[in-house]
Design a binder for these strands. Structure first.
Length: 558
RNA sequence: GUCUCCAUAGCUCAGCUGGAUAGAGCACACGCCUUCUAAGCGUGCGGUCGUAGGUUCGAAUCCUACUGGGGACGCCA
């Protein structure tokens, strides 16, 4: 639509501007009654040395196109009212035709690797991990919608000194039966105990480092323990992923790169990038602290593994982009890793992008496993589903498959709550807010969708190219405009790597529709009935698809 | 100490490539179901956009300083 308007304006301006220049100047009027599209003339005023108003008047009087219904010049703005029927026909017609593929971009034959979720083995899956998981999953869906081939990678935290600690702790205090009964819980206890004891007995830390070194050197008994811990943890994680309806293409955790790091270290050495520093090997970088590659004892570090991972992904997936959906607090780490790759002379380092996000806070502070300031995702999901169940009993007791719907609503509420805010903001954990299903929430959007579905079920609506769209009520115009913006929202959210753009859009669409629904009877036999039904179908389709991108299901009844 | 992110209504947030009267939701008060699901809709209440400067015809939006808060800063991940 904006493109069309820019073309019309280009004719009217009578000076050399490019289409793009004009199109980017276009904005949405702040108030609906002002018009559909506004063209501000302030920048032109500077160029032509005339007052914005005079210019606006001049251009305004030049506009003459059937697409534009009315032109109004107000305070330096040219406000345009478009031909509503044209747009309505175009937008609703397209959605009727292509349905849920509305907004889908053509395949671009480019791969994008998204590294997300990546929980630490032997630690509980907390609310803190939810963020990476749901943001990454949403970005993956959004990237697909934008025409990319997506590879979802779970970079499990299954390697590192922490396992040395765990092995030492288990050998000292662990009981086999207890760990078997409740793996993560028991291992966490051991981990906490280790830290408490290490405060007094510092030699424990040395033992842990040695144990990890042994692990890296494939020492049998250490390896067995590690394997056991890993599989037990993974089983618990899988349950959560099932509940969230999230799948990965690869579980290539840190350990996966164990045999791929030496090559990196050798290459760094060959390229003379390694510097000895207090017995450790580091790569010196400009404008930031050096990047540690190996420790004094020769064991590797997090950065080493991330380097190996980047090379592996580059070679195997040939991605045009790699997203690292990892918390804010690791910004420096990724800057260092990306920089090292650049120093090694690989231009693909510019395809690596850290997608940071704010932390989940508890009482204004970071959650900490060791300090017991941790909330388990499992528990929160359970409560959310229970709350949804209660709501169903209260509001719609005759609903069939209650349990299934309660899952969809409760879990949807938790996911949506996380995704609706700007990615980089910290989120204060609030169960109360998460379990509130009114207002700007997932259930609100789901409810809107479900209500439309029950209308559509009551009638026979055959959707084909023959549907006749007539001019709708004035109050439906805002809905059509929003529907028209969906494809743009899809590309914006990938460009900003921010799912909240989709979440906000879906909320707005639901809100505008609910307003319409409250004031307009849809099932009335008149000449506009079919048009209203097509509108309803279009809204339901876009709501459902938008929610799908966020990883939230849209039940037809609730 | 250095770097970095943040500060908008009682609370949670939107708006930020500068533009027209600062927007939602929650909470609170009141109103709307003999009509398509009231998880909804409406009305009211509520803001010196952290402070002080600067750039500009115009600043919540850009720049600087300050204040307050989060986070990161070599052998953890």
């Amino acid at each position: 639509m904006n493109r069309k308007i820019a073309e019309i304006l280009l004719q009217a301006v009578e000076h050399d501007f490019t289409l793009i220049e004009i199109e980017t100047l276009l904005e949405k009027p702040k108030y609906e009654q002002l018009g559909d599209v506004a063209f501000p003339c302030f920048t032109l005023a500077k160029k032509f040395k005339k007052s914005p108003n005079v210019i606006a008047e001049g251009i305004g009087s030049n506009i003459n196109d059937p697409f534009i219904q009315k032109v109004q010049v107000v305070g330096g703005y040219i406000n345009l009212f478009v031909n509503k029927l044209e747009i309505t026909k175009e937008v609703l017609g397209e959605i009727t035709l292509v349905k849920e593929t509305y907004g889908q971009k053509q395949g671009n034959n480019e791969n994008i690797v998204i590294d997300f979720s990546s929980p630490n083995i032997a630690k509980p899956f907390s609310m803190g991990h939810l963020r990476s998981t749901v943001i990454g999953n949403a970005l993956a869906n959004i990237a697909e919608k934008n025409g990319y081939e997506v590879i979802r990678v779970n970079h499990l935290g299954d390697w590192g000194t922490q396992f040395g600690k765990l092995i030492v702790a288990y050998r000292l205090w662990g009981k086999k039966e207890q760990v078997e009964a409740a793996p993560i819980e028991e291992l966490l206890k051991l981990y906490v105990k280790f830290h408490d004891e290490a405060e007094i007995h510092e030699e424990l830390n040395d033992q842990a480092r040695a144990a990890f070194k042994a692990l890296e050197e494939n020492e049998q008994s250490a390896l067995e323990l590690w394997n056991w811990f890993k599989h037990a943890s993974l089983q618990e994680f899988m349950q959560i992923y099932d509940q969230l309806n999230i799948r990965f293409d690869a579980y290539e955790g840190e350990a996966f790169y164990n045999d791929k790091m030496q090559a990196i270290v050798d290459e760094l050495k060959d390229k003379q990038l390694l510097t000895q520093s207090d017995g450790a090997n580091v790569v010196l970088l400009e404008d930031m602290p050096p990047c540690l590659i190996t420790k004094q004892d020769g064991a590797t570090l997090y950065a080493t593994r991330d380097l190996a991972a980047a090379f592996y992904r580059q070679a195997n997936y040939k991605p045009s982009k790699i997203f690292y959906v990892v918390g804010n607090e690791q910004t420096l780490h990724f800057k260092q890793v990306f920089n090292v790759i650049e120093k090694m002379g690989y231009s693909w380092s510019k395809n690596l992008q850290h997608v940071p996000f704010g932390m989940m806070l508890k009482d204004g502070k970071k959650m900490s496993t060791r300090k017991g300031r941790v909330i388990l995702l499992k528990d929160v999901l359970k409560e959310a589903v229970e709350t949804a169940s209660k709501n169903i009993e209260e509001k719609n007791p005759s609903l069939r498959n209650k349990q299934e719907i309660a899952e969809q609503v409760g879990i949807g509420a938790v996911i949506f709550n996380d995704l609706k805010n700007y990615r980089l903001n910290d989120i204060e954990f609030s169960l109360q807010q998460m379990l509130n299903f009114e207002g700007e929430t997932g259930p609100y959007v789901q409810y809107t969708h479900a209500r439309i579905c029950s209308i559509l079920k009551k009638v026979q609506l055959t959707l084909n190219e023959e549907v006749t769209v007539k001019e709708l009520e004035e109050s439906a115009w805002g809905i059509v405009l929003l529907l028209q913006q969906y494809p743009q929202v899809i590309s914006d959210s990938l460009e900003q790597a921010d799912p909240s753009i989709v979440a906000k859009y879906v909320l707005q669409l639901a809100r505008v529709f609910n307003k319409y629904y409250a004031h307009t009877k849809i099932l009335v036999e008149d000449e506009k009935l079919e048009s209203r039904l097509v509108l309803c179908f279009a809204v339901a389709t876009v709501l459902k698809d938008g929610m799908r991108l966020l990883g939230v299901q849209s039940p037809e009844n609730m």
